[in-house]
């Protein structure tokens, strides 16, 4: 790999890793409070369509990100009503939100643009070059010549880490995820915390979806989330529920996805479909190799009811 190819590879890694990082950072917060949201995929595809429609309506990619975020929150609120408020099973509720989100966005898209799928052309989120930092050799342009959503991920990771581990609110949030009964006894409003973290997760997943439509593709396609919500959940485990490590894990996964372009360019004679499967296989291997030493929040996925 020449230096130019290496730079391209790193740029692709970051570009593919950013939507995962955004979704996984939100999921980290909700899982820390005891909520595993398998419906993240529904929020991402909702964010992609919401972002596309908003960008079209307002003729602005920036406002598209806002409407995408709103659509992500909407999908997550369905999850929150059932899995948090009613206390229904989180895995099954999340599966329903994913199936429903893919169906609903597909139906809206088909109703609006026809079944044949005329190629949508959207206003795109342009890359913003950070002065000085982008001039660092090799990694500079990969990290600092990206869409603004990338910088959101860079800022969020340390901010959320500080919030979780160094503020009283973060402590309360983690208490809700480890021992909700004890947290309630100490005066924490458990359901309210879980509601807030779930909606926050939906917000970031919605932005991730808008990023897919507006920064990557410049268009919307049915099922374009392509399992990124599930990958994001695996990324949270790989990052051991620590926002900074989660960002790194998302970039690792982005690199695994970017490999497909570059191993092919290097003339490695492996089928295209095997490259597509590679990120999933690497994630499985990483989970097998390194989760043994990490521990999930104790109350993760357990429905909780107030004891008062």
């Amino acid at each position: 790999m020449s230096q130019a190819e290496l730079v391209l590879f790193l740029e692709a890694s970051v570009r593919l890793g950013i939507p995962l990082a955004l979704a996984a950072l939100g999921e980290t917060i909700s899982e820390r409070s005891g909520v595993i949201n398998i419906g993240l995929e529904g929020s991402i595809i909702g964010g992609a369509l919401g972002g596309a429609l908003g960008a079209l309506a307002f003729e602005s990619a920036g406002l598209g990100v806002v409407t995408g975020a709103a659509a992500g929150v909407l999908a997550a609120s369905v999850f929150a009503v059932f899995a948090v408020w009613l206390g229904a099973d989180q895995i099954i509720t999340g599966t329903a939100v994913t199936i429903g989100g893919l169906g609903m966005t597909g139906a809206i898209y088909q109703a609006r643009f026809g079944v044949t799928g005329t190629e949508l052309s959207l206003p795109t989120l342009a890359a913003v070059r950070v002065p000085l930092l982008a001039d660092i050799p090799i990694v500079g342009s990969a990290l600092f010549d990206q869409a603004p959503t990338a910088y959101l991920a860079y800022l969020l990771a340390p901010t959320l880490w500080y919030f979780l581990f160094h503020t009283p609110y973060g402590l309360e949030l983690r208490a809700v995820g480890e021992a909700p009964d004890a947290a309630e006894a100490a005066g924490v409003r458990v359901l309210l915390v879980r509601l807030a973290t779930t909606l926050f997760g939906g917000l970031l997943a919605g932005i991730a979806g808008a990023h897919l439509a507006l920064a990557h593709a410049g268009t919307f396609a049915e099922n374009m989330s392509a399992g990124k919500g599930f990958i994001a959940i695996a990324v949270v485990v790989l990052g051991r529920w620590n926002p900074v490590l989660v960002l790194l894990a998302a970039l690792f996964f982005g690199a695994a996805s970017a490999l497909q372009f570059f191993l092919q360019a290097l003339g490695l004679d492996l089928a295209y479909q095997i490259f597509l499967a590679l990120p999933y296989l690497l994630t499985l291997a990483a989970l097998a190799g390194w989760v043994g030493r990490a521990r999930a929040p104790a109350a993760l996925a357990l429905p909780w009811e107030s004891k008062r």
Partner: peptide, 13 residues
């Protein structure tokens, strides 16, 4: 749209 089937499935669950 045929994709509506997915919504119905989610509603059932």
């Amino acid at each position: 749209p045929a994709a509506w089937v997915g919504v119905v499935e989610a509603l059932v669950i």
